[in-house]
Amino acid sequence: MKSPFSDRLDRRTALKWIGTAAASSLIKPGAFALNSSPAAEPGVTIAAAYDGPGYGADPDVIKDYAPGELWPLTFDDHQRRTAALLCGLIIPADEHSPSASDLKIHDFIDEWVSSPYPQQAGDRKVILTGLIQLDVTSEARFGKKFVDLKSAQHAELCEELAIVKPEAAPDPSEAAKTKRSLQQFFRTFRNLTAGGFYTTPEGMKDVGYTGNVVLATQPKPPADLLARLGLD
């Protein structure tokens, strides 16, 4: 059986994807070990975000803003499709709320990784590198880019990347390193997806946040809840 994060991916295929990414000016091809983190490799550089000013120390806090309004976005069409797909896998529609991709959280993630502020620079590297690595791994295992996989294949990868079991001693193999790197990417992507999603009205409703409305009196918590917690 093929190792889940095989280091036997043929080099030509890998370079093809790296070339695609390079064409989009995100990375420069160089000495690229197939299954280690590209960001850690010399010669592979994620292009810096827009380095213009941010919104300044006296922004208009009343108006509404949309991704791309304050600084240019980064994702090309393929990255945007991949990010949208991942958003929908991490937060799918259910009986409580729509999916993160329905709410275009991938555009928020693009805004985030394109930010001129230093806090987002680390996430930019993780996300842009991870999106490439996800395709490299999908190709190695299934012979297709991530967006072209079947839903069972998406599920297989998500299951491996989302759930990180503690290891007694970290496996030093290249495949294990790649897996850990992709798990870090997945965790970051999930955090951003969640932050983007749960700050929307739909997300707030989903977690049972019912505030931000004018009330005449302070609402009382339900008596049965207080009783259950021994606080009545």
Binding site: G54, Y55, G56, A57, P59, V61, I62, D64, Y65, L70, F108, E111, W112, S115, Y117, P118, Q119, Q120, G195, G196, T199, T200, P201, M204, N212
Partner: peptide
């Protein structure tokens, strides 16, 4: 105003 309509969901930056 809610985070969804603010830059970076309203999170902290060196400017704010």
């Amino acid at each position: 105003q809610t985070g969804a309509k603010a830059p970076l969901r309203g999170s902290s930056t060196p400017d704010k």
